[in-house]
Structures are given as C-alpha cells and as structure tokens.
Design a protein around this nucleic acid. Structure first.
Length: 549
RNA sequence: CGGAACGUGGCGCAGCCCGGUAGCGCACUUGACUGGGGGUCAAGGGGUCGCGGGUUCAAAUCCCGCCGUUCCGACCA
C-alpha cells in the first residue's frame, strides 16, 4: 500500500482528494475526450514534434531575431527570455537581472503561492543571508549536497591598491568564515532550537521569500543561475504524521498553483534516494514537461524526519512529558518557474502567458492616421478605462514612434493573452478587433460587449493553455516495458512510465545509457505485474523516467 | 573541472591567410512622408579593434602571454 493511503487514513484532511487527482497521474484517455473545441483539438492532435504548432504562414513563420524552436530549442529559449525583456545577463558569470516584465510574472506566481501558504496557517519571516561556516558541518548528508557550490566570505573589507582600484585587505580576514546560504535549514534550525521547548510551541510554520546562492558551473537564465529567488518553508512538528501531512499539503499547493495559475501540466510523486534532497528522509516533487519534451522539476517538498532536529539537537517535551526530537519539513519553489512557463507555453512568436499570471492581460493597439487620431484615441482611452474598472490588467499602447504592425509583434513576443485593435473603421462601426494569443485568428466584437465578454474569454484562454499543456504531456507520455523501445523513446523525448526494481544500480545504469533519470515514483501505482525496465527483475515501483533540466 | 570556439560602435557580424585611410546590418538622433502585421526616403552621431608585451617604417591583421565570454560533457532547483 502506498504512503499516501497510509497518511490518508491517519489524517482525514486528505480524504477529500482522490489519490489520482492528488497526484495528477497521467491519464491517457480523459484529457482528450473532455477537450471541447473540435477544430482546435484537431490542431493540437497534430502537434509534432514541438508544442505548440508552428505559427500559421499567413501570420509569418517566426519572430525576427528569435531562433525557431524546432531549429534550436535552447537558443530559442534564450532569445525569447531576452527579447521579451524578462531577464538579462548580469555582470558576474551566472547571474541574472530580472527585468520589470519578468519580475512582474514572478510576483504574480509568488502572490498565488503566498496566499495559499497564509491560508494554510504559515507566516513569512526572514533569516540572514550569511551563515557561519561551522553550521555546515552539523549535518553531514546535507553538507555533502551543497558544499561543492558554496560561496565563502573570507574578508570584511577592501582597501586602496597601489596600482589604483581596490584590493582585499588581508588584515580583515574573518576569524570564522561565512557562507552565502545555499538554503537556510541550518540557520533556521539553530533558531528553532532556541524557540522550541514544549509541544505547546509547535507546530512552527514559517516561510521565507529570499535570494540564495549556489555556485553553479553551467547556468541558464531562470532555470539555473548562481543567485536566484525562491521561497523556502521550514516547519517543525510534534508528530511524524503531522509532518508527513504537511509535506503533502504543500506538494498539493505546488501542484494546484502550477495547474491553475501557470497552466502547467505536472506529475507529482516521490523522488528516488539518488534524486532526493541530501538532508531529507523523503523528497516529493512536481515535474512539468517542457516544449522539447524534457522534464523540469517545478517544486519540491521534503519530509525531513528528525534529521535536522538531531543535527541541531532540537528536542521538546510532548504531552506525555517525554523528551523527543522535533519532526520537520522544508519545501521550495523558485524563479525557475518563470522559465517553466516560457518553455511550456511559448512558440516561435514568443511567450504565451496564462492570463492569471500575465502582467498585462489585455493590450489595446490604436490604429489611426492624422485625421482620425483624435477619435480613435478617445475611443481607445474610454475602453482602457472601463476595462481597468472591471479589474483587468490592461495597457493602452499609445506609442507614436512605432507602427501598429510592430506593436502586434512586440506584444505577441511578450505573450499578452488578448490584443484589441481599434481603428477608424472600428470606431465607425462601434466594434473592435480581438486577437487571442493562444490560438490563431482574429474576430470582431461590438464595443459595448467587450466589458462583458473579456473576463470569460480570459478564463477560456487560461483553460485552453492548460488543456494544450495536458494534451502535450499526455501525447508524449508512454508506458514502456521493452528496453530497446525505452532507449529510442528517450532519444525522442517524453515521459516513460516504467517498472523499477528499486536498485540504485539500475537507476545509475539507466542514466548512463540513456541520460534519463527517475523523475518521480508513482506511489499509488502498484507495479504488480511489471518488470524493471533495465534489469527485468520484478518491479518494486512504477516510475516516470525522462531526460530533465 | 575536461573538450571546442569566439572577443572589432549599444547588439549581431565582415575585415585577419596576403600588415598600409576601420566597414556592413540592426539599433540610435533629426526631418518629411506614412500608419489595419516588424514602414519609406533623406541627413546625422557614435569604435584606445578584450588586456599586456614583442616583431615592423607601419599591427584589428603576424608572434607570445593573460583575461573574459559562449557552446559541448561530469554536478544541481
């Protein structure tokens, strides 16, 4: 019996989810049939090899200055991130400047998570960036995971150099060197030791939004940078059951926001020992499929057991007046999610943003000649105002220095879900031209209907992007029992559902031979008659295998 | 940390072999015409050719050293 069922029995809160819904397991039949629009579905069905389909020739094959996705996916990604003004490279290798538009997307994602954390009883706090080096030796396993990528602070000041400029002042060498946090477990648990004495002090449910530093060798904007922004939750509990419940509650929030706000289709499950966080007993994650069919870990939730409590000697008196170690969890999502949204939804024309996290949901492009400018701008301003009053994030593009055609491409690059064009003909006919970013084609709409029609249209776009992502993942997910077929499938890319004998040696061999890793163990799928994809021995687990970022 | 390539106006590049006035596209500025899918024409501004040394009457170009960046492999969210 899988772990979730065990927990469900002890903790009624999970009884409300079916395990299938909870884990969002691949469902090979459901996604297709409940997708309503037949014409659109026809188009999605043909997706290959990349999702979404290449742009319609009528609208131009691709965007200027952006490498087509099918040609070079990695370059396409970098081009789009920069062209859409999400981020730029910082002066130090591996660092990134998140530009206002990219940061606005992150803020929307952040807000969606923050609300849910608060709603489930968590509070935000802030712990220091600098950590004494000695803290890293307290938890051996955890150190092993991060030691290789810790930036170390050794001195406290500079001085003027003889040749001009500055140099490190050797006099200022620190007695104890400091590290820049690669994650905050150690500082936080040092504090929890001081705060926790009794079961009455528990649980502690703290989250922090912070920057962290991991000295990465190979970096990519958003996906892996030396410094990045994230959220790290750290909770302390009196019982194992409570901590386990917390781990899954958060995992569920991660899945929910990914699906509902970011329109990502994810698989949730347990990590293998090789892939789990070094200090954890269990690591759970959500895995999303990117447009090149590779997996991206989009959030992790760790059940830490009593590992950190023991390392930092955090004990408490329970209700029976016995001394016990505290049970713990930690969990995080990062700015990597912005990259996930780009890679999951983008096309050759640029970004496609789900309305709920789009900084601008509707852009209005006025079209005029000198003599019609006043009337058109007046109508455009009125429309902008009333959409703002309706609570939509709307922008009137009144730039007079670029042509309408340029604006169309510009906003498509930036992924704005809906564009409204309004010109002299439209003003005369009391209508507007409406263009969706998620599907091709233009339509017209009566000016007086816009306010009423737009909110449901945004919902529909949100839903359509999610359905496209689901269909894409479903199409590229396959149950495989034959090794050769598996090898070929991994060359092509996608999620393979396979048996695994549970042996780390098999896992390593699979990785060496195919570059695929166990993305997640499907905890509630009993591999009764499955054999291990590699060894052929009876499978202990059903796993999702894929190449990953 | 191994393998490959590249450093020339803000960005992308040519010039380098065969040394001799630093060029092209985009972007930028001004003006006119334009404006329903990345406009046209005209006139402009902007570069110690990554850094240091050497060879030479003369170096972006040849030689040596250094620095930096990007791409591909081992580590990671």
């Amino acid at each position: 019996m899988g772990k979730i069922q065990r927990i469900c029995r002890k903790t009624p809160v999970f009884a409300t989810f079916s395990t299938r819904t909870f884990l969002n397991l691949p469902d090979f039949s459901g996604v297709l049939s409940n997708f309503g629009t037949e014409g659109l579905w026809g188009r999605i069905r043909q997706l290959s090899p990349l999702h979404p389909p290449p742009c319609h020739p009528k609208f131009g094959p691709m965007s200027k200055g952006v490498t087509p996705r099918s040609h070079d996916y990695a370059r396409w990604y970098t081009d789009v991130v920069q062209k859409a003004e999400l981020a730029d490279y910082g002066p130090v290798r591996g660092t990134m400047v998140i530009r206002p538009y990219g940061y606005a997307i992150w803020e929307a994602i952040k807000e969606a998570y923050d609300q849910r954390f608060r709603a489930t009883g968590h509070s935000n706090a802030y712990f220091p960036l600098l950590i004494p080096k000695s803290y890293m030796s307290r938890e051996a396993e955890h150190v092993e995971g991060f030691a290789k990528e810790c930036a170390v602070v050794t001195h406290s000041r500079l001085r003027a150099a003889d040749e001009g400029g500055v140099e490190v002042d050797p006099e200022s060498k620190l007695e104890e060197e400091l590290i820049l946090r690669p994650t905050s477990e150690t500082v936080i648990w040092a504090m929890y030791k001081q705060w926790i004495n009794s079961y009455r002090d528990l649980p502690i449910l703290i989250n922090q939004w912070a920057n962290i530093v991991r000295w990465e060798l190979r970096t990519r904007l958003f996906l892996r940078t030396t410094e990045f922004l994230w959220q790290e939750g750290h909770t302390a509990h009196a019982t194992e059951a409570e901590a386990r419940e917390e781990t899954l509650r958060i995992l569920n929030i991660y899945r929910e926001v990914a699906e509902q706000e970011m329109a990502l289709s994810v698989v949730a499950g347990l990590k293998s020992d090789a892939e789990k966080f070094a200090g954890a007993v269990e690591t759970w994650s959500i895995e999303a499929m990117m447009g090149d069919r590779r997996a991206l870990q989009a959030g992790t939730s760790h059940f830490l057991g009593q590992n950190f409590a023991k390392a930092f000697d955090v004990t408490f008196r329970n209700e029976a007046n016995e001394e016990d170690y505290v049970w713990a969890t930690s969990w995080g999502v990062s700015t990597r999610l912005v990259g996930a949204v780009v890679m999951a939804h983008g096309d050759d024309k640029g970004l496609r943003l789900p309305p709920r996290i789009a900084p601008i949901q509707v852009v209005i492009v006025p079209i005029y000649k000198d003599e019609s400018k006043v009337a058109v701008m007046e109508a455009a301003r009125q429309l902008t105002g009333s959409l703002e009053n309706a609570g939509l994030r709307v922008q009137l593009d009144d730039r007079d220095t670029v042509t309408p055609g340029f604006k169309f491409n510009d906003w498509e690059m930036k992924g704005v879900p809906v564009r409204i064009e309004i010109g002299p003909k439209d003003v005369a006919a009391k209508q507007v031209v409406l263009v969706r970013r998620d599907v091709e084609g233009k339509s017209t709409l009566g000016l007086d209907q816009v306010i009423q029609e737009l909110p449901p249209l945004l919902d529909e776009i949100q839903d359509c992007l999610f359905k496209q992502a689901q269909a894409f993942r479903s199409t590229h997910t396959r149950q495989i029992v034959d090794w050769e077929e598996f090898r070929e499938f991994m060359e092509w890319g996608g999620f393979a559902i396979c048996g695994w004998d549970g042996d780390p040696a098999s896992e390593t061999a699979i990785k060496e031979k195919t570059k695929a890793t166990i993305r997640t163990i499907l905890e509630d799928q009993e591999p009764t008659d499955l054999a291990c994809i590699y060894s052929g021995k009876p499978a202990k687990h059903t796993v999702v295998l894929a190449r990953a970022y």
